[in-house]
């Protein structure tokens, strides 16, 4: 359903241009759940934003169901059925939760909104009429962000680290919600995550590192590898294997 071909992205940073994505290639199939993972700074969020049209890719192509969307705007892609839940959601002075959900989908009436908020572990009564301003906690804005994506009728839903800031008690319901969205609405789901619990949902796992897809693999393989590693520092792993620690250190 989604095809990313030779995708490259260069962004202007403080110290000149940075190549954030290079020569990325992968395909997503209909109705599957994908989990994308890999080291911090590897390019997962940048890739999602390039798919959503927030970053304009500098080379390559993005196809949605065979149609080239590389030059389409954010809202055109949104109207074609792509949704992205931000890793760091925006806050709005003067816009209420109810209003944002109404913007997300005009099909949502109050009872549907209550269900949506329930799915992300919030009680509608306490939240619908509140402004999404700085008074919300990090976990609360994150849940509302996820709800705005659940509210929509999407072909492809991308969730960027949905578990970040979400408490343990709500995680179970959230993972069930992703499965429900996938089964009931046939939405292809791409979740960026570093969590074992989310990895367990994956039909396939896409590994992204250094701005490119390093591997497309199974959850069993990734989970197996994670269990072998007792520390996430590649420098220490190298040390343990007797390698040149400092010179090899890529951090």
């Amino acid at each position: 359903m989604l095809e990313v071909k030779n995708l490259g992205l260069t962004l202007k940073g403080d110290e000149g241009e940075i190549q954030v994505l290079k020569d990325m290639n992968f395909k997503l199939e209909d109705k599957k759940i994908y989990v994308m993972t890999g080291p911090n700074g590897g390019g997962k969020s940048a890739l999602s934003k390039a798919i959503m049209g927030i970053y304009q890719s500098t080379s390559g192509q993005i196809l949605l169901n065979g149609e080239d969307i590389t030059n389409k705007t954010i809202y055109e892609r949104a109207r074609m059925g792509i949704g992205y839940a931000f890793q760091q959601p925006a806050r709005f002075k003067g816009i209420k939760v109810r209003e944002l959900l109404e913007i997300a989908s005009d099909k949502n009436k109050v009872p549907e909104m209550c269900d949506l908020l329930y799915d992300v572990g919030l009680c509608a009564q306490d939240y619908l009429e509140r402004e999404i301003n700085t008074s919300f906690s990090g976990g609360e804005v994150k849940r509302i962000e996820i709800a705005t994506i659940l509210a929509r009728d999407l072909k492809l839903a991308i969730f960027d680290e949905p578990e970040a800031g979400i408490d343990l008690w709500s995680m179970q319901r959230l993972t069930e919600t992703f499965v429900k969205m996938n089964e009931k609405y046939n939405t292809t789901i791409l979740i960026i995550s570093h969590q074992e619990r989310i990895l367990n949902l994956a039909d396939e796992v896409i590994m992204v590192a250094d701005g490119t897809v390093s591997e497309i693999t199974t959850r069993e393989k990734v989970l197996g590898e994670i269990r072998q590693i007792d520390s996430d520092c590649r420098c220490r792993q190298s040390c343990n294997k007797g390698g040149k620690a400092i010179a090899d250190c890529d951090r």
Binding site: G53, Y75, F86, A90, T148
Partner: peptide, 16 residues
């Protein structure tokens, strides 16, 4: 206007 706010609303289907 914060650009994060604009991109969020556009990613929900609004024009700029």
């Amino acid at each position: 206007i914060e650009s994060e706010q604009l991109t969020k609303l556009m990613s929900l289907g609004m024009t700029e």
